[in-house]
Amino acid sequence: MSGVFIQESSPHLMPGNSVERMMRHVLYALVPGYLVCVVIFGWGVIINAVIATVTALGCEALMLYWRKRPVGRFLSDHSAVVTALLLAICLPPLAPWWLTVLATGFAIVVAKHLYGGLGYNPFNPAMIGYVVAIISFPREMTLWVMPLAEQPLSLLQSLQYQLGGSLPAGLSIDAITAATPLDAIKQALGRSLTIHELGGQRVFGLFGGNGWEWISLAFLAGGVWLLITRTIRWQIPVAMLGGMALMALLFQFIDADQYPSPLFHLFTGGTMLGAFFIATDPVTASTTPRGRIIYGAGIGIITWIIRTWGGYPDGVAFSVLLMNMAVPTIDYYTRPRVYGEKGRGE
């Protein structure tokens, strides 16, 4: 054969990675966390996930079509599903369907596509969706199912409540919901109880938040797997967990009655999910190695501050969005020292 060969630019080796593969890995890594959540909070978790996924795919397809992008190619990158599942897991397990649809729709349409779609959005879409929901519907967003309820709702009962708003006869919403550990601490400290006096109220589990510690462990496991498969890099999660633990440790030292331990902070609320799955969203995070440490530590510290002194029980979403805003600046000042260049530190 001496005919015309194919012309292309180097390198000529097949790349081993793809966006689709990375997103697929994130989805796999979410499985353990999701499973534990279902065990602890019941069917509502799955229902939220399904509603969010369907909404996200629908919105994504519409927006791609409207923006004249190859719909099939972009839909198969799974990024919309990842956004949907990250958002859904942050919603209360018995969230009404319209809340999930609204939050997801806002995440995909406004936070992602109106900013230019995959790769161009400065803010984490899932967190934007969450924040919109919590600001607009604070009551619905804080109704958390009691962990490991003795008589959990069946699938059908959950569906009836989430789609139709009706509970089985004789059951009131108060009977099946409870404040989250972070909520409980906030309220208790507001009533000037000490951390110790809270002990009996099923707020604490073995080492973290009651029930939440197992969810956190499962997300941690998924996160470690993401690290091993190099889907994410260590800087952001380590810095975020480190930043938060450091703050907690410092203040626990000052007054152990007022400030929960680092272990509690790490293993409750959205810490693990945030550290490994949300803060590591490449599009909205810092891209330089040193920048990622600053970015991650910032999220950890701000989350702790919001939890401790802010108006909301958990602060992962707000701190992620705040640090998103700082990313261009962080990236600019943390450029690595180019080979052969003096001055700027490595």
């Binding site: 990675n17 966006v19 990375m22 190859p70 190619r73 972009f74 990158d77 779609g117 995959l118 790769g119 161009y120 890099r233 490449p282 599009v283 995070a285 891209t287 330089t288 190695p289 990622r292 450029r335 690595p336 020292r337 180019v338 080979y339 490595e346």
Partner: peptide, 22 residues
């Protein structure tokens, strides 16, 4: 040959760049 996707800013390229560029 598929059309490239947008850059998702994953930073992998910077991790492997022997010239330490971005």
């Amino acid at each position: 040959h598929e059309t490239p996707m947008p850059c998702i800013r994953c930073g992998e390229c910077a991790t492997v760049c022997p010239a330490r560029l971005l």
